[in-house]
């Protein structure tokens, strides 16, 4: 790893002004993606701004019937939260399936969505629940947040501070985990809000996106059988050593059925 200068600001304002003034600074959250990248010398920021000292970024609270979760909240704390289990149990289930225990003890919500790995779990919930991503300067709709492979709507130096997840009437998440990394080969998040249904897929394409054909089928009949017949074309899906685009397309239907069976 190349050397860098380490900062641990105590307030959000200090973190934002540091990242704004440093020429080549990067935010450090749980470090579970950034540190492996630095170890491989795939990145060499001159400065790291550790967010762990900023109290405003931590914790889960109920807001407007839904949940607001601070960017620095660790995966294990979302998975183990009584509030999350009561308000959006599918989100607790999703967080509890990220990586492994040690990764969940360090990794954070903000780091995961800012990194926007095409195979990450949280993006499915951000899009599937129609969440709002809050930053130090604005609020971004979940549908507009992910813009490409490892790309988001964040501007340079812009920090995610929290994510607000509206409460669905019911939601379910199922993923087919890569057996080595536990990342999603395909993950499907389904949420019902009254008569309307949102279906979001992660792992299959360059970033998490909705599946309108499945949303229409489930709005007509909210059952596992209703998605069983809906197939997604493989065009534009990822094809790599783990799975072909055709295999991933097939998995979308299978995972959508399982997400319906896991509806809670």
């Amino acid at each position: 790893m190349y050397n860098f200068t380490y900062h641990r600001p105590a307030t959000l304002a200090d973190a934002v002004s540091l990242l704004g003034s440093l020429e080549d600074g990067k935010a450090l959250s749980g470090g579970q993606t950034l540190l492996p990248t630095l170890k491989q010398r795939l990145a060499s920021p001159a400065d790291l701004v550790d967010l762990s000292g900023v109290p405003d970024l931590k914790g889960v609270r109920e807001e407007a019937g839904g949940l607001t979760i601070g960017a620095f909240t660790r995966h294990a704390d979302v998975a183990g939260s009584d509030v999350v289990a009561r308000v959006i149990p599918a989100l607790a289930h999703l967080a509890g399936g990220i990586g492994d225990r040690q990764v969940r003890h360090m990794g954070t919500l903000g780091g995961s969505i800012a990194n926007a790995d095409p195979a990450a779990d949280y993006p499915a919930a951000v899009v599937g629940l129609g969440a709002w991503v809050r930053t130090d300067r604005r609020e971004i709709a979940g549908d507009d947040f992910f813009t490409g492979m490892f790309e988001t709507a964040l501007e340079p130096g812009e920090l995610v501070t929290a994510v607000h997840f509206p409460k669905p009437d019911a939601a379910g998440y199922a993923k087919f985990a890569n057996p080595a990394s536990r990342y999603a080969m395909v993950g499907v998040f389904i949420a019902r809000f009254g008569a309307s249904v949102r279906v979001a897929v992660t792992g299959a394409g360059p970033f998490a996106t909705r599946v309108p054909a499945m949303e229409a089928a489930l709005a007509a009949s909210f059952t596992a059988d209703a998605v069983a017949g809906v197939t997604v074309p493989p065009d534009g899906l990822n094809s790599d050593l783990h799975a072909s685009a055709e295999y991933r397309a097939h998995l979308i239907t299978v995972m959508a059925k399982r997400a319906m069976e896991a509806m809670r």
Partner: peptide
């Protein structure tokens, strides 16, 4: 809490 000490400064 268990952590991977190779992935923490």
């Amino acid at each position: 809490r268990s952590v991977k000490s190779c992935t923490m400064l």
